[in-house]
Simulated assay, not measured.
Amino acid sequence: MKLLFIGDIVGRPGRNIIKENLKNLIEENNVDFVIANGENAAGGNGITKKIAEELFDAGINFFTMGNHVWDNKEIFSFIDTEERIIRPLNYPPGAPGKGSNIIEVKNNLKIGIINISGRTFMQALDCPFRTCAEEIEKINKITNIIVVDFHAEATSEKQAMGWFLDGKVSLVVGTHTHVQTADERILPKGTAYITDVGMTGAYDSILGIDKDEVIKKFLNQLPARFEVASGRAQLNSVLVEIDEITGLAISIKRLNMLK
C-alpha cells in the first residue's frame, strides 16, 4: 500500500493548497491512504469540526494532532466521537479523545495509527517510549501496518524513537517543528523514518506565521499576537510504500509542492 503523510497544516494557506491539489497528488501517486497533522489547521491553533470535514472532503483520511490539540475549544465537542482524529496517546488518563486507532484502508487491509508527544522541551507527559510500545503490542493483534506520528521538539528524541521502534512499526514520522528534514530513510529492520515531515502552509513565513510579527517578538521580547501568514503556500509530505504482508516499509521519499 502507498501512504501519504502530510506535514502540519497551518491555517488557510495550508488548507487551500490541500483543497486545490491533494486529489491530483493522490491520483498521480496511486495513494491508498492519507494522514495529516492537523493541530494548526484552524488559524494556526487547533482544529474545528467544519475545517476537519472540509479537509476530509479534500482527500485526507485521518488526522493526528499535537500539543496544540486543545487550543480551539470546539475540539472538546467532537473529539470523543470523531474516529478519524487522534491526539497524543501519552496524555494522562481521562483526557478526551484517544491516542490511537485502527482504520480499514481497503479489502480488509487495516492500518494502526498512533500519535505520541515528546517530552524534551515539551510538556511533561507520560513516557512516550513505554506508552508507544504498549500500544503497539495491542495493535499488533489486529494489524502489523502501524504508523507513528511522534510530535516532538528535539531531533535527538525523534531519532531515538525511530531506532527504538525499528522493525516494530511501518513508519515513524516526526512533526511539530514545521521544518522538513532531509534524512528520510529505511532503518535496518524495515521501518521508514524522517525526523520531521515539515509544514503545509505559507511559504514566506516563519513556521507558517507572519514573519514580521515573529521577528519583532525576537527583537523586543514583548508579548505579541501571532497571525497566520498569507501568500504562496507549500505542501510538505512523505510518500511511503508499505508491504501489506510484513508491514515493513519498501520505500520513503519526500513529496513536496510550492504554489
Rank of each mutant, 00 (worst) to 15 (best):
G118N: 06
G118S: 04
G118D: 02
R119G: 07
R119D: 07
F121T: 02
F121K: 05
F121H: 08
F121I: 05
M122F: 10
M122C: 08
M122W: 09
Q123R: 14
A124F: 10
L125F: 15
A133N: 15
E134P: 00
E134A: 11
E134T: 09
E137C: 10
E137S: 14
K138L: 13
I139L: 15
I139T: 12
I139N: 14
K141I: 07
I145D: 02
V147L: 14
D149I: 00
A152G: 09
A152D: 06
E153P: 00
S156Y: 07
S156N: 12
E157I: 10
K158C: 03
K158N: 06
K158G: 02
Q159G: 11
M161A: 06
W163D: 11
W163M: 13
W163E: 13
L165R: 05
L165T: 05
D166P: 04
L171H: 05
V172S: 01
V173T: 10
G174Q: 04
T175S: 10
T175F: 01
H176F: 02
H176I: 03
H178I: 00
V179R: 11
Q180W: 01
T181E: 09
A182F: 11
R185S: 12
I186C: 07
L187Q: 03
P188A: 05
K189T: 02
G190V: 06
T191P: 05
Y193K: 11
I194G: 11
V197M: 04
T200I: 03
G201V: 00
A202H: 00
Y203W: 12
D204K: 12
S205M: 03
G208Y: 04
G208F: 04
K211N: 07
K211A: 15
E213L: 12
V214G: 00
I215V: 15
K216H: 08
K217P: 05
F218K: 11
